[in-house]
Nucleic acid binder design. Structure first.
Lengths: 235, 235
DNA sequence: TCAAAAGTGTTGTGTGTACACCCATGT
DNA sequence: ACATGGGTGTACACACAACACTTTTGA
């Protein structure tokens, strides 16, 4: 910390606690779920809350979010995007805490839950059936879901919820689960394939006693924004 | 301030200075401009910077942005939207300052510049010809412009740059200035009128020696998001 | 042979886009 | 009368949306 106070207003040093909170989404059994942790400390002791914590002195806010996320999961390289900053003075009964909210997407298969020592419990909840949440976390989840639903229409964030190889049916299912409505199979497939971002492999997935489905991979290294005629799901 | 420290990590109280910075846009003479102030204090003394300041103890972050904005202008009720939070540890050479950036839109006609005492100078600059800016403010302006260009496509934010009554040519011009490209007059007018958010008045604006243009008003009380087929300017 | 999901085309409708001329006014 | 910007309609291409049947496999 610098010896001279970095910022002043009316001669008073004004500083705030900054937190990050992460809305981590996954899809399990065709249900969109959010990771919550049970609080061990007051306030809201025993309530479910978003994983998160305080931004330390030397790290960037993004780095803090990434650190919190990796303390809850074992996976590196998770898609993480800043959502909004909530700065109402009374959102935390302990005093002023400004929180920078993020959302993140992880695919269930590669996810490994790592129980943290300072967190008694962590568990996935369907977004449609959340328990009462601490602070204003319910509002943050709602906002994250709105953002996710919006961005799935014109970017490839949705692919973050799938494993490296996936069938078109799985892909469509992930879109349906996020958007909360059914999509037409033929239209969806045609649109996806003509975007030129999928590559069909020579492998198939045998799911039971029906015809095996071709596996595809995503050809782009990361999440991209689709321009011009590249909107995935029309409004 | 509570007597117990609101937040702790590893036993250390961790607090940060929080600033707000506002990218205030207007359109003057068919040029998109941004309000900048000349810094009176170190660091970057004498450089141009975004209007902004420190969030005080009791106000919300949004309220701080609104306050800064109203210190620079005389207008209440300005459209203001949170943009992004920049939290790199070294973005301010004085020490750690996290900034929550906003953008705002004001129409030039009703704007009155109020010279602040603590700011020596404030001036409008075309976004295409900005001077060197303090801190990472150039990046913030770029981000704000990107957001504005994006949101003009599916919301009615663009109307905030116009007076209460305006001609369709003025409306089209504001879109062209923001998007940086010409639009087809007939297509633009048809699309705007069929959205059902404009009401033609019986007044006309005589602009010189040509046919007077009909004045329109915006029928919605505030900025709205257009859904379904309501995209203003197609991608 | 049956059940279950994979996979595949066509058609109608609506929207985006390109494009050129007359109108109303002031000088 | 002329210069200036205001105001209007049509035709084509393409994307979206709706819709049903055949294929492949395991049981």
């Amino acid at each position: 910390m610098p010896t001279t106070s970095p910022t002043q207003t009316n001669g008073h040093l004004v500083q705030h606690a900054i937190a990050v909170d992460v809305v981590l989404f996954t899809i399990q059994d065709e249900i969109l779920k959010v990771l919550l942790v049970k609080r061990q400390e007051t306030p809201y002791r025993g309530s479910w809350a978003l994983p998160g914590g305080i931004v330390s002195q030397e790290e960037s806010v993004d780095a803090a979010a990434l650190r919190e996320l990796q303390e809850e999961t074992n996976i590196g390289n998770i898609y993480l995007e800043q959502l909004y900053t909530f700065g109402e003075p009374n959102r935390d009964p302990r005093g002023r805490v400004i929180t920078v909210a993020y959302y993140a997407l992880v695919n269930w298969q590669q996810f490994q839950l790592k129980v943290r020592q300072r967190v008694s419990e962590a568990s996935w909840f369907p977004v449609k059936r959340l328990p009462p949440l601490a602070f204003d976390h319910r509002r943050i989840v709602d906002y994250a879901l709105e953002r996710l639903r919006s961005k799935i229409n014109y970017t490839t964030v949705g692919f973050q919820l799938l494993p490296r190889q996936f069938t078109l049916t799985e892909l469509q299912s992930s879109y349906e689960v996020i958007l909360g409505r059914r999509l037409d199979k033929r239209n969806f497939r045609r649109k996806m394939l003509q975007l030129g971002i999928l590559k069909g492999t020579r492998e198939f997935q045998a799911n039971g006693r029906q015809r095996p489905a071709r596996l595809y991979t995503f050809t782009k290294p990361k999440v991209i924004t689709l321009q011009e005629k590249g909107i995935i799901v029309p409004f």
